[in-house]
Write a protein that binds this DNA or RNA. Structure first.
Lengths: 354, 354
DNA sequence: TTGTAGGCGTTATCAG
DNA sequence: CTGATAACGCCTACAA
């Protein structure tokens, strides 16, 4: 009377259920926990056994049920990452986070916030996956918003962007001020004295970069010349438009500056385009610089001298901060300022009059 | 003798565990399953109760454990989405997928494939979350690769990009051929006869678009003029470079074409930049068109006539395909061709000689 | 290396 | 609406 055997044949009756560790164990005639040992990569199985188990796993199309795993595991090894698909730079950081997390033995769970999907639900999803920590990239939240998240959830929060140092969550930002200051110093070193600053005020990090400009100019004993776009560009993301608008503004002046520092590459590209149409040549008539080293800055027809904020460094710093607080929650939060570097291309030269 | 009461105080001893449904139930003096009913949004609770439960949830910082949920749930309501952070267009599609999925009552789980993270593991992760279906956006896999995934996993697979119709997985692609053909027809309608095609061969969808060009030219009785970039650009993604290179090639000719159709906006922008430097004006000397309606096409200094492939339509189509096969696995796979639309801006005009 | 026992937080079903 | 009970797939601890 094999009463068990009768119920076991799961022949052709309906849904095909994904294989589990038990299935692999049965298939191989080993214990279920041996299979677990293999997939967890912990000691307790011979290398030959490991090979066989993994082989069988591949054969049966097995992948460990992440939900069950996170349910049972003592502590999560997942980093939740919130990002906005709209901004390309953020995605380079996301890529870097994947690499850095893998190196530290962590997985990554992504959640996007879009026009139709506010930050709140997006963070809730991350929390629902029981991440060990949450990394916010270029969040649209202000300080209080992030504070609310960091307090509400019990997990450490890292803000990558332009946050302010505080003692509730970690902050990673690039040294936008010193990056611009370095650029000003470089351009002044070429002999420029009339150095204007193109300010697209709608950017969140604009104030920081502007400060870098004004301070550097003061230190050099030069007169600051901050040019904002006329009209209301306070919500646009088409910075090329802003650059073109500022170019028009400058063309109305009696005399052009000999150098223009832009606080992002898009604005610089728009500036260059419009100036080109008006017969003003870069760098012969005006030296031009950007910020970000975006794709457009690297195009041979643009070839923009710019400031690079390394997304790899940002991502790595974010992961480091998160892991640090995960492994040692008692440690105080910190602010990581990632250095920038100057990329000199052909859009800058000594002024003609020099 | 409240023997239970004594063990219940989980005072200040160590780790603070995220609240569960039981915690909320206890807090409110109701049953655990009532709480479940509320968070599942199924009938069985008064609206007043729902309010109180949700309120308590917010107060305690509760978010349902997604792992436990997916472990227990009969069928998943998650769509796994694989994308490459490198390509901006894909991210617009991702955003659209979020919106479309929400409308159909599905959640989205993201997984990125990057330089350091191959497609294989990225898909495994999705499968590990027990998604109901997997959507591949702009995958680097060829037909056989996708086939392997679709066969290996038991879930439906949708490929968004340039896949070929087949009976194992669904395909969503834009009508690149007719989009270009429409453009050629439009430009010919302006009076152009010498219409060249700028072909950045490294793009996966290049062949399809080229075909649209050659067919339209033949139909119009015009001579096709496909211009590829000199040298090896087979792996570049800097299409501006390609555009500039082709511009140089054309400038070496005795006579310029009166119109140039580009198969993407970046290439058109590079073309425009270089031509501008050489004193060739757009559209007075040459009419120029792009494809994608990328940000750069919309810049006022470029203002490119182009073909728009609506990411919203692509994302929606992908979700529809996935949901269709999830709810009815027996249904055959299908190919969805998303229509494109012409965006006429100021980079096209009638030829001078006409 | 194997087996055994228990439990993670949730969904699901049933009878009250 | 409550209470009881089972199960999902996996991890952890312990004993064999």
């Amino acid at each position: 009377m094999s009463s068990e055997g009768d119920e076991t044949y799961d022949g052709d009756e309906g849904e095909r259920r994904p294989p589990t560790m038990s299935d692999i164990a049965k298939h191989l005639g080993v214990s279920r926990q041996l299979v677990s040992v293999v997939f967890r990569d912990v000691p307790g199985a011979s290398s030959e056994t490991r090979r066989r188990v993994r082989e069988a796993g591949r054969e049966l199309g097995f992948s460990p049920h992440l939900g069950a795993r996170s349910l049972r595991r003592a502590k999560s090894k997942d980093l939740g990452v919130l990002f906005a698909p709209a901004h390309p730079t953020e995605l380079e950081i996301v890529a870097a986070i994947y690499a850095a997390a893998a190196e530290r033995g962590f997985e990554v769970i992504l959640s996007a916030h879009t026009d139709t999907r506010p930050t709140g639900p997006a963070v809730q999803e991350l929390l629902g996956h029981r991440c060990a920590a949450v990394i916010l990239i270029g969040s649209d939240l202000d300080h209080d918003g992030i504070l609310a998240i960091a307090r509400g959830s019990q997990v450490p929060v890292v803000d990558v962007g332009y946050g302010k140092r505080n003692d509730t969550y970690d902050v990673v930002r690039s040294a936008g001020d010193t990056g611009i200051a370095d650029m000003v110093t470089y351009v002044a070193g070429l002999g420029h004295r009339q150095i204007a600053f193109l300010d697209p005020a709608s950017m969140p990090m604009a104030p920081l970069r502007r400060r870098g400009y004004t301070r550097a100019m003061k230190r050099l004993g030069l007169e600051a010349d901050v040019v904002a776009a006329p009209g209301d560009y306070s919500h646009t993301n088409y910075f090329e438009e802003v650059g073109a608008a500022v170019a028009r503004t400058l063309l109305d002046r009696l005399e052009l500056p000999t150098a223009v520092i832009c606080s992002n590459d898009q604005a610089a590209a728009g500036f260059l385009q419009l100036m080109g149409r008006q017969g003003v040549r870069i760098p012969q008539d005006i030296s031009l610089t950007g910020f970000d080293d975006a794709t457009i800055a690297q195009v041979s027809a643009v070839d923009l001298t710019t400031v690079r904020q390394d997304p790899v460094l940002m991502g790595t710093a974010a992961v480091n901060a998160a892991v640090r607080r995960v492994t040692n929650p008692a440690t105080p939060t910190q602010e990581t300022v990632v250095p920038t570097s100057l990329i000199v291309r052909s859009s800058t030269a000594a002024p003609r009059s020099a």
